[in-house]
Design a protein around this nucleic acid. Structure first.
Lengths: 192, 192
DNA sequence: AGAAACATATGATTTGAATCATGTGGTTGC
DNA sequence: GCAACCACATGATTCAAATCATATGTTTCT
């Protein structure tokens, strides 16, 4: 998780959310920073006009609201997408520790740079129109091997911005073409 | 720019690139951090398999390679997309200053959290399939008003992952429906 | 253990975004 | 001031991805 080493220093508590329950609501003042331990949390933004939009889905080991470390209010709402376990840290305490402890701040900085890079990569993957190309590009990224390896296919489909039906089909085609191999739910590029 | 206050402390120099010239190449060791002053820089990643893919386009006031602050080697190449002016900072010097100066580190942290938030937002905008919905969602974001307001429409189209032709057409439809107003190249949502 | 909820899978159909083509207007550079 | 380049625009066409439907396999909850 993003605060691995800090976890021992910081006081924390664990809370359990039922699917559909809210962790916080857009506009609430930012008191806490969270880390998903199990399950998933959807970040949803209420727009003045019309339907709320999904901003992000955080899975196990992912921290959320660190983007709100410097905000007064949450700019989105967080809802459990399934029964979920979340670790809670105090924002103020975290900020204090970071200030006293440049090394851990540097560490957090590092994690954020990685996040930025991953997000950019994902962003451009999403720009690819062709399903085959998109899937191959996604599979060639690091975060597929690392973090995403145990995500349901359906969720991966959503992550890269394609209908899950299309994703299943595309995987099959690529498999038949010998471009990828699958055993159980682990997918591997053939080349390299 | 991302290092606004640091700019005065850090030593820097400005370099000029012709369209198509490389700033650095994937695999080069990371000596410098850059900030685009004028023009634009494309970050491109060479994939073992097949065509290189575009990771990001950095415009004026945008820093690049800060995602590489902690990397030994650049993970992508940077090419000028047009005649471009870039400010160069030394990575080591920047890291040193940050360490000595927790406040500026905190500041950089803050900028990165904003970047993460924006990227997530953009990411989900890209997931929207319907052109109209996608454009409306994009227009409702902050970074449209702030940073993107002077981008060519063509570049915005690329940023949100749609063919520029579709973007022009969609804008026209939305304008005819009274959902948006345009004067010159500034676009505004009607409601709110 | 059984039920409910969800992931995986695949077929049929529709649709709308990409693509190709072409033209005009506006900037930029020499 | 001219030429080259690029943004903007719009029409016609194609095609592949979304959608709808339905079924089976798999986890999860009680």
């Amino acid at each position: 998780m993003i605060y691995s080493e800090l976890h021992n220093i910081l006081s924390s508590k664990t809370i359990h959310l039922k699917s559909g329950q809210y962790l916080f609501t857009q506009g609430d003042s930012v008191k806490n920073i969270y880390c998903v331990n199990k399950g998933r949390i959807k970040l949803v933004r209420d727009t003045f006009e019309g339907t709320p939009i999904l901003i992000h889905v955080a899975y196990a080991e992912e921290s959320i609201a660190e983007a709100s470390l410097f905000s007064k209010k949450y700019h989105c709402s967080a809802m459990a997408g399934t029964n979920t376990e979340v670790i809670v840290y105090s924002k103020d305490e975290l900020l204090k520790i970071l200030q006293e402890n440049p090394e851990s701040m540097m560490n957090l900085l590092k994690q954020l740079t990685t996040q930025v890079r991953d997000l950019r990569m994902l962003n451009e993957t999403k720009s690819i129109y062709s399903a085959k190309e998109k899937v191959l590009t996604y599979l060639s990224t690091e975060f597929h091997r690392d973090k995403d390896s145990d995500l349901p296919l359906k969720d991966i489909a959503q992550k890269i911005g394609m209908a899950h039906e299309t994703f299943y089909r595309t995987l099959k085609i690529l498999e038949n073409n010998g471009k990828i191999k699958r055993n159980k739910s682990h997918i591997k590029l053939t080349n390299l």
